[in-house]
Simulated assay, not measured.
Amino acid sequence: MVRARVLFAVLVLLGCWMLQTTSAHEVQLEEASCSKQFRSDVNITVVAGPGPAGQKGDMGPRGHKGTPGERGETGAPGEQGPVGPTGEKGDTGELGPAGETGTPGVSPPVPTLVAFSVARTTGLTTNWSKKQVTYDDVLSNEGGAYNMTTGKFVTKVGGVYFFTFTGKTSGEYMIHLKKNGKIMVSIREKIRDLVDNQASSNSAILELDVGDEVWVEVFPGAYSLHSNDGRFLTFSGFLISQM
């Protein structure tokens, strides 16, 4: 290796010497290298090869911390990620304090009560003339709408009412439930051998205005109704819904 370096240096010196004899231009020789350029009809450059690499130098001292740069623009929001799994149910929290007492509520109106039930304890006979049936025993008369003297129910509260009435005979009869003089429903019975007794009933739901009248009436004819303390003849009614 040393011999090769020495031989290389000799060749370099020889080249430099040859250049000195050819021209009077500047000659440069530094650290076993020589480079010569001169103007002639032909340009000739001689360059020596590089020397071996030197050892790595020590790291220099750390420089001063630079000033922070300007903050960049805020980037656009990224896409929303997938929803994560539902977590476990947490423990029940403590009971909060009681709230303030509310204002008292308004009670609903008390439904209007209208109801009556009457009975007749004696029989009734007609002679080819209509006759309004009256009842001498008042079982109930809530609201006071039934008139015991006339036998009529006179409406004091408009609404929908239910009425029912009965008849009993040992001969023949026909009776009607009337509203303001108009027949609503009827009962008719006739016994041919005049031995047995026959009883029937009928009922109706009527829509009444204040002042309407409802009663039971015997149709004109030779009819008879039978009753006694057993109260076989009755007339009843009550308010279903107020209008």
Rank of each mutant, 00 (worst) to 15 (best):
T150F: 04
K190Q: 10
Y135A: 02
E142R: 12
S170Y: 14
G151L: 02
V154T: 15
V214T: 06
K182I: 14
T134H: 01
R188I: 08
K168W: 09
I191F: 05
H176D: 11
S186W: 08
L177N: 07
V185K: 09
E189M: 12
S201K: 11
I183E: 15
R192C: 00
L177M: 11
I187K: 00
Y135K: 00
K182P: 02
G181L: 01
K179Q: 15
K190E: 15
V138Q: 09
Y135N: 06
K168N: 13
V185N: 14
E189P: 05
T149F: 15
K152D: 14
R192V: 09
M174A: 12
M184V: 14
N147E: 12
S186Q: 09
D193P: 09
K156W: 01
I191T: 14
G159K: 01
T149W: 07
G181R: 02
V210Q: 13
I191H: 11
R192A: 08
F163V: 00
K168D: 07
G158N: 02
A199M: 10
E172P: 02
D137N: 12
M148Y: 00
D212Y: 07
S200C: 03
T134S: 04
T166V: 05
Q198T: 13
Y173V: 13
V185I: 09
D136H: 06
E207D: 08
I205E: 07
F165A: 04
Y135S: 05
R192P: 11
V185P: 01
D196S: 13
V214Q: 05
D136S: 11
G167Y: 02
K178A: 03
V195D: 08
V210W: 08
D137H: 11
K182N: 13
V216N: 08
Y161I: 04
N141K: 01
L206I: 13
W215E: 14
A204E: 12
L194P: 01
I175T: 13
D196A: 11
G159W: 05
V154E: 15
R192E: 11
N147S: 09
N197S: 09
G171Q: 09
V138H: 01
K190N: 11
K190H: 12
S203D: 12
D196K: 14
V185H: 10
Y146E: 06
A145V: 13
